[in-house]
Amino acid sequence: MTLARKGARRIVVDGTAYRWHAARRHLCCDYEGGTLGWVAEDAAHPGTTLVVETGRRARLSPRPTPADLILPREVATGIRTALARGWNPTVNGSPFKIDLPNSETDQGS
């Protein structure tokens, strides 16, 4: 499964480019009382998609708070964690799912 280019953001982690976005219709997130998550893939050679669940409640509000946002540093941390756990983003396969409930943005919640 590859990510749509529209709405995806680019991030470079340790010299490798990835595309990511908040998951609205993917396996991890419901956005109506569910939890906040995001998905990522290798930008040059998409293969296995990374699905990250933050464990933070997703709230629909006109003015998001910092806890409602997914920051690039959180994505970089998630990508590094997934790689350390065996995610191989350039090989085709089922989505690689991880939970990161203690992300950097949780500290202020």
Score class of each variant (00 low, 15 high):
residue 2 T to G: 10
residue 4 A to H: 03
residue 4 A to P: 06
residue 5 R to K: 14
residue 6 K to F: 11
residue 8 A to L: 03
residue 8 A to M: 09
residue 8 A to W: 01
residue 9 R to V: 01
residue 10 R to H: 13
residue 11 I to G: 13
residue 11 I to F: 10
residue 11 I to S: 11
residue 12 V to S: 15
residue 14 D to T: 02
residue 14 D to V: 00
residue 14 D to M: 03
residue 14 D to P: 00
residue 14 D to N: 13
residue 15 G to I: 11
residue 15 G to T: 08
residue 16 T to W: 01
residue 20 W to E: 00
residue 21 H to R: 15
residue 23 A to C: 15
residue 24 R to C: 08
residue 24 R to L: 14
residue 24 R to M: 14
residue 24 R to A: 11
residue 25 R to G: 13
residue 26 H to M: 15
residue 26 H to I: 08
residue 28 C to P: 01
residue 28 C to Q: 07
residue 29 C to G: 09
residue 29 C to S: 15
residue 30 D to M: 05
residue 30 D to R: 07
residue 33 G to F: 05
residue 33 G to R: 11
residue 34 G to P: 04
residue 37 G to N: 10
residue 38 W to P: 05
residue 38 W to K: 05
residue 39 V to L: 14
residue 39 V to F: 00
residue 42 D to Q: 08
residue 43 A to C: 04
residue 44 A to H: 14
residue 46 P to S: 04
residue 49 T to H: 00
residue 49 T to C: 09
residue 52 V to I: 11
residue 52 V to D: 12
residue 52 V to Y: 10
residue 54 T to G: 12
residue 55 G to F: 03
residue 55 G to R: 05
residue 56 R to N: 07
residue 56 R to D: 13
residue 57 R to T: 15
residue 59 R to S: 12
residue 62 P to L: 12
residue 63 R to G: 08
residue 63 R to Y: 12
residue 63 R to I: 14
residue 65 T to L: 15
residue 66 P to C: 02
residue 66 P to R: 05
residue 68 D to L: 10
residue 69 L to Q: 07
residue 69 L to N: 08
residue 71 L to I: 02
residue 73 R to T: 00
residue 75 V to P: 09
residue 75 V to S: 05
residue 77 T to A: 15
residue 77 T to M: 09
residue 78 G to K: 14
residue 78 G to Y: 05
residue 79 I to W: 01
residue 79 I to L: 06
residue 81 T to I: 10
residue 83 L to R: 15
residue 84 A to C: 03
residue 86 G to F: 06
residue 86 G to R: 05
residue 87 W to V: 00
residue 87 W to G: 03
residue 88 N to R: 15
residue 89 P to D: 05
residue 91 V to A: 12
residue 91 V to F: 03
residue 91 V to N: 04
residue 92 N to I: 07
residue 93 G to P: 12
residue 93 G to L: 09
residue 94 S to V: 08
residue 95 P to T: 09
residue 96 F to L: 01
residue 97 K to L: 12
residue 97 K to P: 01
residue 98 I to P: 06
residue 98 I to G: 07
residue 99 D to H: 04
residue 99 D to N: 13
residue 99 D to T: 07
residue 101 P to C: 13
residue 102 N to C: 00
residue 103 S to C: 06
residue 103 S to R: 01
residue 104 E to V: 01
residue 104 E to S: 02
residue 105 T to C: 00
residue 105 T to P: 01
residue 106 D to A: 14
residue 107 Q to V: 11
residue 109 S to W: 07
